[in-house]
Design a protein around this nucleic acid. Sequence first.
DNA 1: GCCAACGTTGGC
DNA 2: GCCAACGTTGGC
Length: 154
Amino acid sequence: MRHWLLKSEPTSFGIDDLARAPRRTTTWDGVRNYQARNMLRDDMRRGDQAFLYHSSCDIPGIVGIVQITREGYPDPTAFARRHPHYDPDSVRAAPRWFMVDIRLQRKFTRVITLDELRAHAAKELQGLALLRPGNRLSVMPVTAPHWHFICALE
DNA sequence: GCCAACGTTGGC
DNA sequence: GCCAACGTTGGC
């Protein structure tokens, strides 16, 4: 099993929205970056786990764990002319953008803040993609040792 | 293929 | 609101 980290902005869709969703499940649509697309399309497997990370908010950090419940499939919002994520270059015969389905597994009892993660950047969390300067990817891999260390922080 | 301009992300 | 980072675009 592989581990991941997914970013979301809680003002548009956060962990509490996911908790209220039917079957605590949602489509992870709207990703429009090729590197992230490749991971959604090619690398994520049903049953993989991912941290949910809140960005662009008062206290950025990891807020819980989700499971991948459906592997990569074409993102239909790219086909919808009036949708904010519409991409005229993505057509049904040759979809450009992909998404997965996720289900909330567990909301953490507290936010594991970006500050707290950074405090371990030089040692236990060395190489964590989230802590790389200038990183803006909304989907990134997390190694098993990093995963377990972060879970233990809670 | 190069690279400047531009847009977006996201912490602060 | 600012700004650094960096992906994308498009002229050449």
